[in-house]
């Protein structure tokens, strides 16, 4: 096995630093922009600044900035993980990366069929972005997924994909899918079509937001409780002793488990909706017909 050169190590360290840098940037921005406040506060995303635009001011909020920071962090993490790949896996890092790629391809083809193998980078990207965005709240930052605008954007992207794959078998086929099983039910089918992105966005955002609201409420409640129970002791009473530890245990459920689970569910539903809406057999039949026609033309 080849020995690592100094340049390799330097690039490695640099990429790792660049992975951590966006999170530090987010913390600094948060500290700079948070207005001083007393007591507990449950607010939406902070507004960093507004860009004047013709119709309406473009508002840059904490959620958008944090989402871009997460993207940058994931980008550099990927660059770090794929740095120094060899044809034959020798390092632990490469084995780990290959395991991730293999698992994501397995997940995609297992749920969507072999035709959708090319979807695995998209699914892995959604999974990673969603999970890391939710885990950002572990650093005390505002999780972008607890803002509906961010999640609604992803849901609309999924909706576009669903419609695109439904359209692949031709517009007639697409319109026909609304009159299924009887044309009488078309309005209901249209409603359920629109409800798909809405429910996906609300599910993800509602879970993360409710978790963060409950965390804040529990922390505040414990502070009040410790002031009530231990408040009579001269020096110790000033410190909210009951706040130590317990919010952390709850945050394992609300931040870590719930966040990762919602990421998995979002990716899973994306896969199921896209592959469920795509009439593969009809598309294949159409493709075969088109190819046959082309060949017949070539022969003539």
């Amino acid at each position: 096995m080849k020995e690592k050169t100094t340049a390799f190590r330097v690039v490695d360290a640099l990429l790792l630093c660049l992975t951590i840098l966006p999170i530090v940037c987010g913390m600094v921005l948060k500290i700079l922009f948070t207005p001083p406040a007393e007591g507990i506060q449950i607010t939406g995303a902070l507004i960093y600044f507004e860009v004047p635009m013709p119709v309406q001011n473009l508002v840059i909020t904490e959620a958008q900035v944090n989402a871009w920071l997460v993207m940058a962090a994931i980008l550099f993490l990927c660059l770090y993980l794929t740095h120094g790949l060899q044809v034959k896996a020798q390092t632990k890092r490469q084995i780990f990366v290959e395991w991730i790629v293999e698992k994501s391809e397995q997940l995609t083809t297992g749920n969507m069929g072999d035709y959708f193998l090319g979807f695995s980078p998209f699914v892995a990207a959604i999974l990673a972005l969603s999970a890391f965005s939710s885990l950002l709240s572990l650093f005390g930052l505002y999780a972008p997924t607890s803002d509906i605008n961010v999640v609604a954007g992803w849901a609309i992207l999924t909706f576009i994909l669903i419609t695109y794959y439904k359209f692949k078998a031709g517009p007639v086929q697409y319109l026909k899918s609304f009159g299924d099983p009887v044309p009488f039910l078309a309005p209901l089918n249209i409603i359920s079509e629109v409800a798909t992105p809405v429910s996906m966005a609300f599910r993800h955002y509602g879970n993360i937001l409710s978790g963060s609201v409950i965390s804040v409420l529990i922390a505040a409640g414990l502070q009040g409780l410790s002031a009530m129970v231990l408040g009579w002791i001269p020096v110790v009473g000033e410190i909210p002793l009951l706040q130590i530890g317990l919010p952390g245990v709850l945050s394992i459920y609300f931040d870590v488990f719930s966040g990762v689970l919602q990421a998995y569910i979002f990716a899973m539903l994306t896969m199921l909706y896209v592959s469920g809406g795509f009439p593969l057999e009809k598309y294949m039949a159409k493709k075969a017909k088109r190819q046959a026609r082309k060949q017949a033309k070539a022969v003539q």
């Binding site: 609300f202 599910r203 509602g206 879970n207 409710s210 689970l261 919602q262 539903l269």
Partner: peptide, 17 residues
Amino acid sequence: MLMGCAVAETTGLYALV
């Protein structure tokens, strides 16, 4: 089961929103 639970949760989350 986790998938199904998440889908069943939707109505509750509408109420929550």
